[in-house]
Design a protein around this nucleic acid. Structure first.
Length: 317
RNA sequence: GCCGGGAUAGCUCAGUCGGUAGAGCAACGGACUGAAAAUCCGUGUGUCCCUGGUUCGAUUCCUGGUCCCGGCA
């Protein structure tokens, strides 16, 4: 397989949570006739609006948004599915003669779209459950030893306590009979993924302390805007507390409060703290994107000028 | 004004019978290929209030300051 080459223009806007991606994406979309493709692992879920800080319904009716509200909270969605859906959305937008504006903060999803994801071993729930039970019964060291026997390369890379990767590595081996490390090595040789030859990638940043202030404020606002009601509504709809989607920031905090494990103050404090830590992890992802041009979010004119220049250059060629 | 107590990491504090220091929280850095807002790994970031003295050596003991907190006036 060869990487798909997309020559049509494409804008990418990334940045940590709460930095103001939505505002800027709307400005850019209006000015350059874009449709927005959300690169966000949580905004894909319906009924989870406040905690995922989706663009408002009005904003979404003004500018088309893709990959928001596409699955129910109890459906499985993952990076591989995103890579397919994202590419499809981009194609559709191009076919309408418009420009896709990828906006979001989920590093893995962006990577899955750009570099592809090795095919052939989708999640196998049955195997995964068996391994989960074994992890509980036998402990991580035992399973990690087992991994070193069937895939020593991955075992070296994966820490014993990293339960998710440990289980995934074993799952891949037991389902396919081929070590994860071999799948990956092979995939590197035959990269599919998508190569954008005309993409402008913009990274948004701001002073860390100011960002944290914004995060704290936004967490307060989420609670004021009825995050608790949103969670209670989801429970009333019959969604189980164990769902993946409930494990995300905000939802799990409110759930812990509702179930009486934390006081409201505790829940709010930890919600803000975990959001701050999340923003830090997002920066780690973005720092690896070599084609990214960084701007302070306050430098709006500079950003607009950069986009303007980029378009001018495109029209010449 | 007097009597006590205190001053050590961003915060709350512990500690050093004299050999330049630590816990919780917070913070910081990193990893990441089908859960990723997940999961994990790593890191003390410090004029130990100032001053002088004793000492080979003072954050620790002593002198004198400064500030804070109680209590009594």
């Amino acid at each position: 397989m060869t990487p798909e080459i997309i020559k049509q223009p494409c804008l990418v806007l990334v940045g940590p949570t709460a930095i103001g991606k939505t505002d800027l994406s709307l400005i850019l979309a209006r000015r350059y006739d874009c449709e927005i493709v959300s690169v966000d692992s949580m905004q894909v879920y319906r009924h989870m609006d406040i905690g995922t800080a989706k663009a408002s319904v009005d904003e979404r009716s003004e500018i088309p948004h893709h990959l928001i509200d596409i699955v129910d909270p109890d459906e499985n969605y993952d990076a591989a599915q995103f890579a397919l859906d994202g590419l499809q959305a981009i194609r559709d937008i191009h076919s309408r003669g418009k420009i896709p504006l990828l906006t979001g903060g989920t590093g893995l999803y962006l990577r899955a779209l750009f570099e592809g994801i090795f095919p052939g071993v989708p999640v196998d729930e049955k195997t995964r459950q068996i391994l989960k039970d074994r992890l509980l019964a036998e402990g991580p060291s035992k399973l990690h030893e087992e991994l070193s026997l069937c895939d020593s390369v991955s075992a070296k890379r994966i820490h014993t306590n990293d339960s998710q990767r440990l289980l995934r590595a074993l799952e891949i081996f037991y389902v396919s009979g081929i070590p994860w490390s071999e799948h990956l090595a092979h995939h590197k040789e035959v990269t599919e993924g998508v190569q954008f030859t005309n993409a402008l990638q913009i990274g948004l940043t701001m002073d860390r302390q100011k960002l944290y202030q914004r995060i704290n404020t936004r967490c307060d606002q989420m609670v004021e805007c009825g995050l608790e009601d949103e969670v209670r509504k989801l429970l009333a709809m019959g969604y189980d507390r164990q769902l993946k989607s409930f494990g995300s920031i905000g939802y799990r905090h409110i759930l812990n409060y509702i179930d009486g494990y934390w006081t409201k103050e505790e829940a709010l404090r930890l919600l803000a703290r975990d959001t701050r830590r999340y923003a830090k992890r997002q920066y780690t992802w973005f720092s690896r994107l070599t084609d990214l041009q960084w701007f302070d979010v306050a430098e709006k004119q500079k950003i607009l000028q950069t986009v303007e220049d980029w378009f001018a250059k495109l029209n010449l060629s």
